[in-house]
Design a protein around this nucleic acid. Sequence first.
DNA 1: TGAGGTTTCCCCACGATTCCCCACTTTCCT
DNA 2: AGGAAAGTGGGGAATCGTGGGGAAACCTCA
Lengths: 147, 147
Amino acid sequence: MFAGSHQLTVDEKGRLAVPARYRHALDAQCQSQVVITMGYEPCLEIYPAPEFRAICESIVQMENREHAELLKRAFVGRAVECELDKQGRISVPTLLRRQAHLDTSVVLVGQINRFELWAEDKWTAMYGEGPDSILPTLKDAFRALKR
Amino acid sequence: MFAGSHQLTVDEKGRLAVPARYRHALDAQCQSQVVITMGYEPCLEIYPAPEFRAICESIVQMENREHAELLKRAFVGRAVECELDKQGRISVPTLLRRQAHLDTSVVLVGQINRFELWAEDKWTAMYGEGPDSILPTLKDAFRALKR
DNA sequence: TGAGGTTTCCCCACGATTCCCCACTTTCCT
DNA sequence: AGGAAAGTGGGGAATCGTGGGGAAACCTCA
């Protein structure tokens, strides 16, 4: 289960050092094999490989064929399989980096079954120190949650 | 079950000494593994790790997808797993401390299944010596409570 | 087919941060 | 008053994030 956010830098070679605390889990869960792709948010999504395959299954079995086709093109079609190198880094494909408008300063966010990779400025603007804009909705969301 | 409030200090390295009376319970309940994150109040929330995981389950299964997404980013995305050190302290991440506007003087408040960590001035202003502002609502709340 | 250039991967190194351990001081209980 | 437990502080070692160099693999174009 992934949680937490880390400010990281993508170096000149497009490499991203995965925080050490996640490496062990990723190794155990998927032999350090991950899939990077995009959803509808302006950020990259990083899945452990088995998790991604499970989502593909779900897409194939969708009732709504039109939705399924769209997801196959936009979600599956943009996916790239990667592997952590021996130093625990993944090299993020240039195309995806451009599509998500990532420069060197990024934020890696744990999202339970996946990670999201945001441009730092976008992330801070939306969920950072002063997330005043989302506060009312957030309050509603918390109240809808049993805990 | 956690109750009561303690005035504590966060030292220069961002460490918080958990009152000894809670340590046994935390050790028994979660091997001293806790998760620190933020809700919509300007304070930090500290959960025993299993408690936090249970909440994540609830989030994943929420009906309202928009709420679930928001909670995943704001609640899960800001969470940090910590472990009490051998001296019974947790080191509170700098980012979270800044977001909750904590300086050295804080109040740890037992909240049944979690703790809350408030900046002392905020806590005293809201629930401290003169809680005049909340008194009418408090009255309603008590009357709604069977006891 | 071969040469040049580019990309990818691995290793090493440095600086900063984090974590762990030890010690001191204060408080509370006996 | 004495002792034990708890809160507080600091020093040192290990780890982690980051950058760069070099070798191997790949692709392109002649």
